[in-house]
Design a protein around this nucleic acid. Structure first.
Length: 223
DNA sequence: CTATGATCATGA
DNA sequence: TCATGATCATAG
């Protein structure tokens, strides 16, 4: 089995056309076309669906800190759906830098850049459906509305303010309306440098920004 | 270790 | 039941 390589889309309409073709296929069909093996389940392959879709659409960013479709500046995210066809999980966006001290600008932050233009790909994710039989839905492009961006900016600023104050150890996933901060690491024993409230260097568990399911439900409803 | 891709699994 | 906190895989 040799994996099929898909070239990067050159235009947005080319990307949309590829999504049109994917919609209505199962993950098993798509994997077969690309000569990729379907795992038993996702327990030890949590990123498999996202990686499959990136390959199918020709994402070319690899694991670099760039949008998936570099030339188009578009980020791709899968949107796992439950049996009710509603988003089932929160969506990971990016890592939180734990040693910020000075001024932080929303206009320049990584999170805003990542969410500037997103291709959402809904995928059946009900665990009652075998992985290979799950259907791919109709993908849609999204840019934050003025209202959405205002809330994201507020959440981001409130959370980043606490990190600047050295309170990152106290942040829980309960904070934030659309955004939340949760652990993002191989396991809870992984530690990175952070700044404590007294300004000292301290070790803490890495964290990431996630979009709440409440928010992605809205996106799906509004599309 | 950091980035990418996320879902798992348990307590409330 | 469901969100929070924990965890899994891979590349560079």
């Amino acid at each position: 089995m040799k994996e099929v390589k898909v070239s990067p889309p050159q235009t947005q309409s080319e990307l949309e056309a590829r999504c049109q073709v994917l919609a209505g296929k199962t993950l098993g069909q798509l994997a077969a076309e690309l000569s990729i093996l379907v795992p038993e389940d996702l327990r030890r392959h949590k990123g498999w669906v996202g990686e499959l879709l990136e390959k199918a659409l020709g994402a070319d960013a690899g694991n670099k800190a760039l949008p998936d479709f570099v030339a188009l500046g578009i980020e791709m995210k899968t949107l796992p759906l439950n049996a009710l066809r509603q988003p089932k999980e929160s969506t990971y966006v990016c890592t939180v830098s734990m040693q910020q001290t000075g001024e932080l600008l929303w206009q320049e932050c990584w999170l805003r850049k990542k969410l500037a233009h997103v291709l959402w790909v809904p995928i059946e994710a009900d665990n009652a459906i075998p992985l290979a039989e799950r259907y791919i839905g109709q993908a849609f492009l999204w840019k934050p509305s003025v209202e959405q961006e205002a809330v994201l900016k507020r959440d981001w600023q409130e959370l980043m303010d606490r990190i600047v104050l050295g309170e990152q150890g106290e942040i829980t996933a309960k904070e934030g309306e659309y955004l939340q901060i949760r652990p993002k690491a191989a396991h809870s024993q992984v530690l990175v440098d952070g700044i404590s409230s007294s300004g000292e260097l301290t070790k803490i568990n890495p964290k990431g920004f996630y979009l709440r399911t409440l928010f992605t439900k809205q996106l799906l409803a509004d599309k």
